[in-house]
């Protein structure tokens, strides 16, 4: 089953008077259960590609379908609901909510979905155990280490059981061993739950965990490798 489909997608950014092309007519298909890595130098269009798939940015030309839905034709309200139900986002800089504890940060997406308190508690406790954070669940982000923070962020992205997880350099700010542990966690989910992952990364170690790696340059896929 096709999860994401991009057809001849163009995107450029305007900064003052200069325009920088980010995507140059890219086409791509992502199948269910895939674990894809995006590699390429800075400015090659990795993040832009992820943003378009996540419905938080829009193409200048071309079509983006996620689960057969044309994201361009959805209202802001529909897109927010779509992101909440279908997607999991993991950011390089974690982007946790500073005033919420680890528990509450993970709970937040469930609140958005309107899930009852008791069920939320059960699922958060389960996820805290899975990412090994039960001991620090009442700590706020500024009381956690980088690795712990990213594990909270991953827990937050996965807690709703999303079908597609979009991660932008999820291990970029982590040391080697923490990064590996997190990748193992993703791999396990991918195998058990058939969750589709797409990761942007600079790190060849990360790429080694992927089933397929796409190399981007100047907004185009220049090479593709099976893992």
């Amino acid at each position: 089953m096709v999860v994401v489909s991009l057809e001849q997608v163009y995107k450029e950014y305007k900064l003052g008077k200069t325009t920088t092309p980010a995507l140059n007519g890219i086409s791509l298909q992502l199948m269910e259960g895939e674990m894809i890595g995006l590699m390429g130098p800075s400015g090659s269009g990795k993040t832009t590609l992820l943003n378009l798939m996540g419905g938080i940015d829009f193409a200048d030309r071309g079509k983006v379908f996620v689960y057969d839905r044309d994201l361009e034709n959805m209202s802001d309200r529909q897109l927010a609901a779509f992101r909440s139900r279908t997607l999991g986002f993991i950011f390089q800089s974690f982007n946790l909510i500073p005033v919420l504890t680890a528990f509450e940060n993970m709970e937040y997406p469930l609140v958005l979905q309107g899930i009852a308190k008791k069920e939320r508690r059960r699922r958060v406790e389960e996820m805290l155990a899975a990412v090994g954070l039960t001991a620090v669940k009442d700590h706020r982000p500024d009381e956690l280490s980088g690795g712990q923070r990213q594990r909270v962020a991953i827990g937050r992205a996965l807690i709703t059981g999303p079908k597609l997880v979009i991660a932008d350099e999820p291990t970029g700010n982590l040391d080697q061993s923490t990064g590996k542990a997190i990748l193992e966690l993703m791999k396990e989910l991918n195998e058990k739950e058939k969750t589709t992952f797409i990761l942007a990364t600079h790190d060849p170690m990360v790429a080694s965990y992927m089933k397929r790696v796409l190399y981007l340059r100047d907004g185009l896929i220049v090479r593709e490798e099976e893992g």
Binding site: A80, R83, S84, F89, S93, N95, I97, P109
Partner: peptide
């Protein structure tokens, strides 16, 4: 700003 961006990316409505 970034926090709001994250909240919105997670599916928080305007």
């Amino acid at each position: 700003t970034r926090e709001i961006g994250a909240l919105r990316a997670l599916g928080t409505q305007k």
